[in-house]
Design a protein around this nucleic acid. Structure first.
Length: 401
DNA sequence: TCTGGGGTCCTAGGACCC
DNA sequence: TCTGGGGTCCTAGGACCC
């Protein structure tokens, strides 16, 4: 059966949302109307562009580039701090609004949703619904979206990326040659900067070139990914709108430190703060994990990682830190370190956790104790209870929940 | 004061087993 | 008169997305 899919994409999300927030707070300047970006703190070495206004874009400023380079392109650029609480609020409002149309909504990211309208059109045309949503968001929420209208997710997503902002675009099968095949190959979803030169070498420059190329040669060269690319270029995508809340498969935290670290004790200090935060989040999900990995990035941007599978699953700060510390000691080769990270994977629900022969009773006790500490933190603030030496670093770790 | 942070998925090679 | 061959699990690294 033919499906009816919308992809809703907030225009310049972080910047637009901050603009709306500022106006709501009574400020008169709409930062969407000036060259402006959302950027991280340069003193903390987090200084990259996270979002930009359309005027900033006209100066050639790109998301992800360093702020110093953005400033070079536009010396008068205004830079605003990131505020995830604000983003979350407007993202939730958008989601609420979309739910009036269909409950089959996949939150693809904080600023993008897929909406499956197949069973909810009631004889209306999909494009009419798209225009109605567009108008409603603009009028009620005060920011704009692009909406892609298609019969599968990939085409809806590609369509929402056409001319911006505040637009509705269709991309039906018969429109693929005219609207999609003419685009440069870099525009295709999943074709990133590593794949691009490889495709150029094969004389593939447009999405159309890829669509018409030999599928089997692509599979030979790129494996599974080759097949996906070829199918996407031809507008083929059978994936469902995953509207049920997905459980995380892994959680992690990492931080770029304000100055390179050159001793293991300092690394462990940061690692402890990161471990506390990651396991705190894991406990909030009521989940446990059994693969611990740590990551180091050197001052010259080389990445190293080590991971270890445990023979039990846990969310105990102490247990996980014990492993993480061990891993980082193996990993550290006296190079100056700029980023430290920890992840926990292979997650499962706390209740479904298999009782392992290797897990001793103390770990269970430890997990319970951690939850008691979590509750105190929830009540009195995250900073109240910290392990010794943890204070300075904890503040630098970006917490979102 | 050049290059964030949080995810998911895939691959390749080695260990290990039957 | 050197080398089996699947299958699974584990690890390190890399690709992509926002």
């Amino acid at each position: 059966m033919q499906r009816e899919i919308l992809h809703v994409d907030v225009n310049n999300a972080f910047l637009s949302w901050l603009a709306v927030y500022k106006l709501e707070q009574g400020e008169s300047l709409d930062i969407r109307t000036i060259p402006a970006v959302i950027g991280g703190d340069e003193k903390q070495r987090h200084g990259i562009v996270l979002a930009k206004s359309n005027l900033a874009k006209q100066f050639g400023i790109k998301t992800g580039e360093p702020l110093y380079s953005a400033r070079k392109k536009c010396p008068t650029i205004k830079i605003y701090e990131s505020n995830f609480k604000v983003y979350k609020r407007y993202s939730d409002m958008l989601f609420q609004l979309l739910q009036e149309y269909s409950f089959k909504i996949e939150r693809f990211s904080i600023d993008e949703c897929f909406v499956d309208m197949t069973e909810f059109l009631n004889n209306r045309k999909l494009i009419d619904v798209a225009y109605e949503i567009s108008k409603k968001v603009r009028e009620e929420l005060k920011f704009t979206v692009n909406i892609g209208v298609a019969h599968n997710k990939l085409l809806a997503k590609m369509a929402s990326d056409f001319q911006k902002p505040n637009r509705v675009h269709t991309l039906y099968e018969k429109e693929i040659p005219r609207k999609m095949w003419i685009l440069p190959i870099s525009e295709l979803f999943m074709v990133g900067k590593r794949t691009l030169p490889k495709l150029y070498n094969m004389n593939i420059r447009t999405i159309g070139d890829l669509a018409k190329s030999d599928k089997n040669i692509l599979i030979k060269k790129f494996g599974k990914f080759g097949k996906v690319m070829w199918e996407y270029a031809n507008g083929i995508d059978d994936s469902e709108v995953n509207y049920l809340k997905q459980k995380p498969k892994g959680v992690g935290n990492s931080t770029t430190v304000s100055q390179d670290i050159t001793n293991i004790e300092k690394i462990e200090e940061v690692l402890l703060a990161l471990t506390e935060h990651t396991t705190y989040r894991l406990r909030k999900y009521n989940m446990v994990g059994s693969v611990v990995s740590v990551q180091l990035r050197t001052s010259d941007f080389k990445n190293y990682s080590h991971q270890r599978k445990l023979n039990f699953a846990t969310n105990s700060t102490k247990e996980i830190f014990k492993v993480a510390k061990d891993l980082v000691r193996q990993l550290y080769k006296n190079e100056p370190i700029r980023l430290i990270g920890i992840r926990i994977d292979n997650l499962c629900d706390e209740e479904e956790k298999q009782i392992s022969l290797f897990e001793d009773i103390n770990i269970k006790k430890q997990e319970k104790l951690d939850k008691v500490v979590d509750n105190i933190k929830d009540k009195f603030g995250y900073e109240i209870i910290t392990r010794a030496g943890d204070m300075k670093q904890t503040k630098n770790i970006n917490r979102k929940d």
